[in-house]
Design a protein around this nucleic acid. Sequence first.
DNA 1: CGGTATCCCGGGGGATACTG
DNA 2: CAGTATCCCCCGGGATACCG
Lengths: 115, 115
Amino acid sequence: MVLKLRKKATALPGCPMSKCMDLLGGCWTPEVLWSLSEGPRRFSELRRDSPFISAKVMTSRLRDLEQRGVLTRTVMPTSPPTVEYELSELGKELLPAIRSIVEVGTRLLLRDTSS
Amino acid sequence: MVLKLRKKATALPGCPMSKCMDLLGGCWTPEVLWSLSEGPRRFSELRRDSPFISAKVMTSRLRDLEQRGVLTRTVMPTSPPTVEYELSELGKELLPAIRSIVEVGTRLLLRDTSS
DNA sequence: CGGTATCCCGGGGGATACTG
DNA sequence: CAGTATCCCCCGGGATACCG
């Protein structure tokens, strides 16, 4: 279940690959962004979308992404509280890369099941 | 210099995103594959391409990728020994995703420097 | 050249319990 | 609902030294 994935550095700062992977290379980051690609989502919705991400990590990832300007966090003054996460313009610029990842993954999966 | 990146799990196994990120999500993995995208490379060439990857990690990454069938390792019976790494068919299927990552990164970098 | 072996370490992540 | 707060653990990565 738990697989080894990217942990730390990318290559030289200032190189395109790093610039992008710094934003979507974090653990679970692509999943979160993918969930958000179809529109704003609330915390609990994101958790349901990716049930294997613990609340702690989900929060941490969302905070990271917010700080990097990839998404926005909006607290609605309701009771009980409602929080909406939404991709920023920067976040939307990452979508082509994520779509590509999903596309490649889909093709590989299809090949697996058909063979 | 050293940034926080993906470490462990992706979401549900059997989902497209995971299928792809399992292969290119490892630390430094995209860099290595990117180096190999232009053709076969020897160990020392890969090290020169990505000077920030320690030999230990480079080896580990290459072994991982070999085992997952993303690249092939060929030892030439020369002296001193020569080893060539090359993308497999599976590895080449990942290239669109990696290109997308590089493209997005390039666009972001350009925007940074022009603003 | 193309790696291993070893030591060390930090922090990211899981689980669980609790809160405004 | 949308998180915090702890505790704990593990292993992935850097550095250095060495090998066939």
